[in-house]
Amino acid sequence: MARLSTTRLLLTLTAVGLSLPTAAFAQLDLTITALEKSSGESCSVMECVNRGFNAQDCSGSASVDLRPAAGTMVTGNMIDVWMTTGTGDCSTTEARNPMSATCQHVGCYDLTDSRFLIPLSDIDGAATTPLCADGSTRAGLNVNLTAFAGAGCMNQDAVDADATDNVSVRVDSVGPVAPTLDSTDLAGDSSVSVGWETGSEANLTYRVLYGGACTGAAGDGGTATVDRDTLTQLGGDTDLMATSRTIDPEEGLGLEIGESVGVYVAAIDAAGNEGELAGPVCVSRIQALGFCDTYMDCESDGCSAGPIRGAGLGSLFLLALVVLRRKR
């Protein structure tokens, strides 16, 4: 009985011993689970990860949060990371040797708290195409990161395909061009509509600001010289992608009759980069006369229903009906 138990125990231990290494060192499977933004915010929603890093992240301490798939182990608990902004594959020897061939070496990173943190500054530093510096493209770039496990650091030799994985991260550090405004001067009492043409980039949103005098570039899509910090953001945004905003000069801009203010518009791209300001559109509040001011049957609380015109005709019609009915 005791002998049988010992045999069973040995078999079990052997099975566990054999199965563990197979499960732990399976195919390297890495996923970007979050972008640690320079603002301190951890952006883990897929939509946010896909938007990538922006100019603010470039100037701060942002990093890619890369995690191995659950239940797997990474040989040596370290990865060797290479990058390319092209379509090349960094897993081939030719792509890494010489280092400037197609891919550049980003760095080697230890597994800490079940994740690899790859600083954006390392990626930017390795890139031969500007990512964060002046000269980077307005539409941004997709960076392909190739990670190797168990192959040492800065390995330029052949690597095991099972210990290799690729992920992609987007870097867009340039804001969109200033929108072209539809008008230079607008005047009204209770509303004016500021409009602009949509930009060429996809998924742009717009921010409307106001403040200061009506001077400077106006309505030509050019950039304004005003200090953006002195401006106030217009409240009440509902559709940020709309290419016009109806503004109440009194309640929205706080203008008295006869006063004016400059209104500016900036486009914001999907990565969150705010472009240069367009404007100003000079919005003036002047006393305006609408229909209800000119129609004498209207008061401040609305117009009266007005007389029923042709009431006499109606009465005659009703009278005729009554008479006809009586004759019958």
Binding site: G188, D189, S190, S191, V192, T246, D248, A288, G290, F291, C292, C298, G302, C303, S304, A305, G306, I308, R309, G310, L313, G314, F317
Partner: peptide
Amino acid sequence: FTTIDNGSRREHSGVALGL
């Protein structure tokens, strides 16, 4: 039924009858 909006404000909303 009639509504009159003067920019961002509704200045009139009313109903009138007739033949």
